[in-house]
Design a protein around this nucleic acid. Structure first.
Length: 681
DNA sequence: AGCGGTATAAACAGGC
DNA sequence: AGCCTGTTTATACCGC
């Protein structure tokens, strides 16, 4: 039963969301229940969900789902790394490396248990970033290693095959091998297609160049990383079908070969010796160049064999020695449907990781680039228009320059932390975030992250990922308005900003638009100004600031904990500094970071504050002058009719062109202009 | 438990 | 009439 609400909402909104939601929800588990339950009022929502379920997933949903999957996998992966990996025996190369890299803090958090959201809340941005970064590095590393191993295995197979060939009827082998190869080929193709699709849809924005980077190295990872299997225990890695399957033809792995660049090289490999014979380092045989140090040491030496047991996904059979293991491999994991299926799954896992990796890498690059030369972003307000002067007449309400500053784009000096920035993608949490449908808590808003910096950093992410941004509507609206040169936007422009900036808002339009309107009307901080062209919305910073303090003050401790909680030394420091600079609101709270900064911040608030008197118009903002305001005053003038006044001030241009994003300084435009309006909804 | 902030849904009104 | 824009009201969650 769709509820009445459904009428409008459903058609647009729910569909996507739910589809995804349900999926992701499962992943998280926790969230789903909440969402569903929440429905109390949200009958509509539920209904929507139902509606959705019936249908198939839209491409977008599918993508989303895949994304979620990838994230999920990544999370598990991380967990695995953090926690147990260290099992002695098998630490393949990667292990050593990876294990070491994973910070204790990470290990302690057991990612798996946390929903992305929780992770975000628990970890400070910097930490999150660091974590993600590490994760990324690990993934990359592991993938590379797996890749190598795979190659080795293939070689091994070839060798064994050669031998086997003598013993077994070639035909049989040939067939099997062919089948296997085809399978691999298909997988690879699939993988590539998938990637392409993602790219096309903008989900994965890898540029060829970038994509090539990571992907190339671990290209189509045709095969199974030993560890991965563990991730999703059930599945399997192709782990090379035992030697028996090994066939000579293997060479034509062409298909695979494509991926495995190095393949060619191997041939030279030692003769027919069966590797197995080699106790450990057999891979060594192949170990080509990059094997690098890493795994060589591993004694046992079969990617699928680690401390005495078979590492084939879902199989933990104990094998005393390599020989036994190999037998086991041949018998239990021969080339059959099951193994193939497992292999396929493994492929998927790898694929997802690759995609994610590519994506994260891209983001990282962008972020690094950005940090190194920040100039680009700040454009919009960074340079405050009119400093003090402005006070007087902006009928339109302009947010004082200062204000802009605050949330505006200032990017935290974090730059220091530059390297770190990369990921923090709220993304991780994505699944849970929107999964449940309307995510309820926009934590970050409360915590601290200055929306602007947060946005700047994860811009790409929000743009492409169907993840609900962790900000309140009010903060988003404000951001949208502040990003505009004139600090004013029409309702429609606000809508456009939302859709342009967040993939999440490309769906459920009826719902969030209603919310936007609701927020505009509800919050005193948003002032409507009549304009020639119609009406525009502006932000009354003073009002806006007014409402925030409580939060922070309320739980300064919380914030503090958050920050200090995990000792991430440097990171914290940088982050704090960043906070100090960028987020005033937060800082305002007394004890927080450093008073100094806070004070500096204050100004902002008052910009409006300036109006001690409270000219604040309209709404009864009988707002008492909250922050002692410095002297600047200027502020908003009014809400209703001020129209005229403003007009003069701002010549038509700004608004004029419906150009939503404000024509002028296209600051973020560069980011992505693509989506103009919201056709998507 | 109460309160404040926020989200969502929806009714309603005015304008185009 | 239909859509957009605004305003309001109601309800539910969440965190303090």
């Amino acid at each position: 039963m769709m509820v009445e609400s459904a009428s409008e909402t459903i058609r647009s909104a729910p569909s996507g969301q739910n589809g995804v939601g349900s999926l992701s929800g499962q992943a998280d588990g926790s969230g789903s229940a909440g969402a569903a339950g929440a429905a109390g009022g949200g009958a509509g929502r539920d209904a929507a969900a139902g509606a959705d379920s019936n249908g198939e997933m839209s491409p977008a949903d599918l993508l989303h789902f895949q994304q979620q999957q990838a994230l999920q996998v990544a999370r598990q992966f991380l967990l695995q790394q953090a926690s147990g990996l260290s099992s002695p025996g098998n630490n393949d190369s990667k292990q050593s490396a990876s294990a070491v890299q994973v910070p204790v803090s990470v290990a302690m958090m057991s990612p798996q248990m946390l929903t992305p959201q929780q992770m975000q809340q628990i970890l400070s941005p910097p930490q999150l970033q660091a974590l993600l970064q590490q994760q990324q590095a690990l993934m990359l590393q592991q993938l590379q290693e797996y890749y190598k191993k795979q190659q080795e295995q293939l070689h091994l197979q070839l060798l064994t095959q050669q031998q086997a060939g003598k013993q077994q009827p070639k035909e049989a082998l040939g067939n099997k091998q062919l089948a296997f190869q085809q399978q691999l080929l298909q997988m690879q193709q699939l993988q590539q297609q998938h990637l392409l699709n993602l790219q096309r849809q903008g989900l994965v924005s890898l540029q060829p160049s970038q994509a090539s980077g990571p992907l190339q190295t671990l290209p189509q990872a045709a095969v199974c990383p030993t560890d991965l299997p563990q991730l999703w225990k059930g599945e399997g890695a192709p782990g090379q079908p035992a030697e028996d399957s090994v066939k000579q033809e293997g060479l034509d792995l062409t298909g695979t070969a494509t991926t495995a660049t190095s393949f060619a090289a191997p041939p030279k490999v030692s003769p027919p010796l069966s590797h197995h014979t080699l106790p450990n380092g057999q891979p060594t045989v192949l170990t080509p160049r990059r094997d690098s140090s890493s795994h060589e040491e591993t004694p046992g030496s079969h990617p699928l064999y680690g401390h005495g047991e078979c590492k084939w996904p879902g199989c933990e059979t104990l094998c005393e020695d390599l020989g036994q293991f190999i037998k086991h491999l041949n018998t239990e994991h021969a080339l059959d449907d099951r193994s193939t299926a497992q292999c396929r799954v493994q492929m998927q896992v790898v694929q997802q990781l690759e995609i994610q990796l590519a994506k994260e890498s891209e983001r990282l690059q962008a972020m690094m680039a950005h940090l190194h030369m920040r100039p680009s972003e700040p454009k919009p307000f960074s340079q405050p228009l009119n400093p003090v002067s402005g006070s007087s007449s902006f009928s339109k309400v302009t947010v004082s320059a200062a204000d802009s500053f605050p949330d505006g784009l200032v990017h935290p000096p974090t730059s220091a932390a530059a390297p770190v920035t990369p990921l923090r993608p709220p993304g991780l949490g994505s699944a849970s975030l929107h999964s449940g449908g309307p995510a309820r808590r926009r934590s970050s808003d409360k915590f601290c992250s200055p929306i602007s910096s947060e946005l700047a950093q994860n811009h790409e992410f929000y743009k492409n990922a169907d993840v609900r941004p962790p900000f309140t509507y009010a903060s988003l609206i404000r951001q949208a308005i502040l990003e505009t040169p004139d600090r004013q936007l029409t309702l429609n422009e606000i809508y456009n900003w939302f859709t342009r900036m967040f993939a999440y808002f490309r769906r459920n339009t009826a719902t969030w638009k209603n919310a936007v309107r609701h927020n505009l009307s509800l919050h005193k901080c948003f002032v409507r100004v009549e304009n020639v062209k119609g009406a525009v919305w502006t932000v009354d910073e003073r009002e806006y600031q007014k409402r925030r303090p409580p939060k922070m003050t309320g739980s300064p401790t919380l914030v503090k904990n958050m920050i200090s909680g995990l000792s991430y030394g440097a990171l914290n420091a940088s982050y704090q500094a960043a906070l100090a600079e960028s987020s005033f609101p937060l800082l305002n709270s007394p004890g927080m970071l450093n008073p100094g900064s806070a004070s500096s911040l204050l100004p902002l608030s008052h910009d409006d504050g300036g109006a001690p008197g409270e000219p604040l118009p309209s709404n009864g903002s009988s707002t008492p002058p909250r922050l002692s305001p410095p002297q600047y005053s200027h502020q908003v003038q009014v809400k209703e009719e001020p129209a005229e006044a403003e007009e003069d001030r701002r010549p038509g241009p700004p608004l004029g062109p419906p150009n939503p994003s404000a024509a002028g300084p296209a600051e973020d435009r560069d980011l992505e202009e693509e989506l103009p309006g919201e056709e998507l909804s």
